[in-house]
């Protein structure tokens, strides 16, 4: 069974984001990169499948800049067998990334049985790549999954939709699944795992190697800027129990008279 996991390397969630002077992207020099948090659920799910199917192989794929290879090494330290990196700028659009992933899968010469990814990457928050990749490979897909049962080639997955309702899908492998928080609890990489990961094979390709060029770009971003800052609000000290009702009443009143919201 050939399992592929698509991961992305994104700025740590605590990173302060600063647009570049010309607004073409963000300053990336001092960013701490981490594996996209949703991708951890995808890696974990692949490893859970491998535990039950020891013959399965787990290959991790990433499209992005080489700065460091944190995401791929982390996935291999968790237990993935090998990895492939397609070197590209960090501001590539979803269509190009999906096409590069497709090309990277083809480079392995393996036919995918299961492709897992995080439901979204927390940098461009596009929620597109898994579904585009599925369409490019003519495979079924389910996104935002929080439940996964595999028996043979039959799959039952739960997808979370608005208001916390769940859609239960039945499908068969091969397919693409985009994972959400709640699907499983990602394991931590063990020290032996981290040591082993350093020796695991990692293929490296250029975009041209996997058949992607600038003409594949479908979405262009420009004019990056910080959102407008709000003017400072009003602050009320209601630590004195005797004043609480008066102050809360005042705030509730302001929501109507000043903010005109209620």
């Amino acid at each position: 069974m050939n399992i592929f996991v698509c991961v992305k390397q994104v700025p740590d969630t605590e990173t302060k984001i600063t647009p570049t002077g010309d607004g073409s992207f963000i300053e990336t020099a001092s960013i701490k990169w981490i594996m996209n948090p949703y991708d951890e659920f995808a890696v974990e799910q692949a490893l859970l499948v491998k535990q039950l199917n020891p013959a399965a192989t787990v290959t991790v794929l990433r499209v992005g800049s080489v700065k460091d290879t944190e995401a791929l090494r982390t996935a291999m330290a968790m237990g993935a067998d090998d990895a492939a990196l397609v070197e590209a700028a960090d501001n590539l659009d979803s269509y190009s990334i999906a096409k590069a992933l497709k090309g990277a899968i083809q480079k392995t010469g393996k036919s995918p049985d299961l492709i897992l990814a995080g439901k979204q990457a927390i940098d461009d928050d596009a929620l597109q790549v898994p579904q585009i990749l599925a369409q490019m490979l003519n495979l079924p897909s389910v996104s935002v999954i929080v439940g996964f049962e595999l028996s043979g080639s039959a799959l039952k997955v739960r997808r979370e939709v608005e208001g916390g309702a769940l859609e239960v899908y039945e499908l068969a492998t091969p397919c693409v699944l985009a994972c959400n928080k709640g699907l499983n609890t990602p394991r931590y990489a063990s020290l032996p795992g981290i040591m082993k990961a350093k020796k695991k094979p990692m293929a490296q390709y250029s975009l041209a190697d996997v058949g992607v060029s600038e003409s594949d770009r479908r979405v262009k971003y420009s004019q990056f800027k910080l959102p407008p800052e709000k003017p400072p609000g009003k602050k009320f000290d209601a630590t004195d129990a005797g004043k609480q009702r008066e102050l809360v009443s005042q705030v509730v009143g302001l929501l109507r008279t000043e903010a005109k919201i209620i």
Binding site: P11, T13, T15, K16, I17, P19, I26, Y95, I122, D123, D124, D125, S215, R217, R218, V219, K220, Y221, S222, Q223, F224, K225, L226, P227
Partner: peptide
Amino acid sequence: RPLFAGKCLAKVEVTG
């Protein structure tokens, strides 16, 4: 559209 979870905004255009 917002990117990086709303920490910044960018202009977005579609090509192709």
